[in-house]
Computed example of a mutant assay.
Amino acid sequence: MSNLHSIISVAKQAIEIEYKAIQNLIPLVDEEFANAVNCIYQSKGRVIITGIGKSAIIANKIVATLNSTGTPAIFMHAADAIHGDLGTIQEEDVVICISKSGNTPEIKVLVPLLKNGPNKLIAITSNKESFLGQQADYVLNAYVEKEACPNNLAPTTSTTAQLVIGDALAICLLELKGFSSSDFAKYHPGGALGKKLYLRVSDIAATNQKPSVTPDTDIKQVIIEISEKMLGVTAVIDQGEIIGIVTDGDIRRMLNKYDNINGLTAKDIMSVNPKWIEADAMAVDALDRIESYGISQILVKDNDQYAGVVHLHNLIKEGII
């Protein structure tokens, strides 16, 4: 038990140290940060991000975030840069160099080579007075008092701070570019996230059968229609308009209510004013309505015409839930 308490205590302490370090970054965001953002925004090139060790891993993450939010970015490893990868940098690119100390041997070799070109250099460092800090055109202060590591050695708090600064950069650029959710969808077409952003109700309804009966359809035929179309529901259509819905729940309630179902028709058991959604609505909106109404399926309309059904199972299958 004491071992468990010790683990919990150490974990909470690590989180607390990093939490405080992130809070301490807020007053460090100043005009220089804003000028660095404007430098990237006004550039006609890409953002080249470089670093060594754990900072290189953070650089990769920031590159991914920038690319996914509309700012073209490329990772360049600081060690590889001096062995040919400097050719990655084009004339109008902006270079971001990440280093906690700003004084590592690789950085001291790389920075003068970067300064030989026309590119603006942005530093993300915990030491503004470092070699990197002194040489950079803009310095983004990622100062941390100590690492979460009890030996104050393993990069933990410092890499978290670098990541947060990178995220802040990306979000500022996103805002300046007016990057919308539809833009985001273009860069995230795969997976559940992409589907939430681009999949529409019509896309799902088109894959389903389209159960329908008239108000005077015999109840046995209604049951057959629901069974064959395998959506647990059928729309009741009169002169092209949806006037009701019959669900498998309506069928069960009918069987409990009537000993003899001969002569019954759809209009005798249908629910009027059924829930529906427009075909061009987002699939995630269909999920919201299904959940809010406490139902399993919802009818679809396209220009006031019956266009099909979306079932909760469809949304689960597509990964919307």
Score class of each variant (00 low, 15 high):
Ser6His: 15
Ser6Phe: 13
Ser6Asp: 14
Ile7Asn: 15
Ala11Glu: 13
Ile15Lys: 08
Glu16Ala: 15
Lys20Asp: 12
Leu28Cys: 14
Leu28Pro: 10
Val29Ala: 12
Asp30Arg: 08
Glu32Tyr: 09
Ala34Pro: 06
Cys39Ser: 14
Gln42Trp: 02
Ser43Cys: 04
Ile48Thr: 02
Gly53Pro: 01
Ala59His: 06
Asn60Asp: 13
Val63Thr: 04
Leu66Phe: 06
Asn67Gln: 04
Met76Val: 14
His77Phe: 04
Ala81Met: 09
His83Met: 10
Gly87Leu: 09
Ile89Ala: 08
Asn103Ala: 11
Thr104Phe: 09
Pro112His: 08
Leu113His: 10
Gly117Asn: 10
Ala123Asp: 01
Ser126Met: 00
Ser130Asp: 03
Gln135Lys: 07
Tyr143Met: 12
Asn151Asp: 12
Ile165Pro: 00
Ala168Ile: 04
Ala168Phe: 05
Leu169Phe: 10
Ile171Lys: 01
Ile171Gly: 04
Glu175Ile: 13
Phe179Trp: 08
Ser181Thr: 10
Ser182Asn: 12
Gly191Glu: 09
Ala192Ser: 15
Leu193Gln: 07
Leu193Met: 12
Arg200Ser: 09
Val201Trp: 01
Pro211Arg: 11
Thr217Glu: 06
Thr217His: 08
Asp218Ile: 12
Ile219Asp: 02
Val222Thr: 12
Glu225Cys: 07
Glu225Ser: 01
Glu228Leu: 14
Glu228Thr: 14
Lys229Trp: 05
Gly232Asn: 02
Ala235Ser: 00
Ile237Val: 00
Gln239Glu: 11
Gly240Tyr: 05
Asp248Gly: 05
Gly249Pro: 04
Asp250Thr: 02
Asn256Ile: 01
Tyr258His: 11
Ile261Glu: 05
Leu264Glu: 03
Val272Ala: 06
Glu278Pro: 05
Asp280Ala: 10
Met282Glu: 03
Asp285Gly: 07
Leu287Gly: 03
Ser292Asn: 10
Ser292Ile: 06
Ser296His: 11
Ile298Gly: 01
Ile298Cys: 01
Leu299Met: 13
Leu299Gln: 04
Asn303Tyr: 10
Asp304Val: 05
His311Asp: 14
Ile321Arg: 15
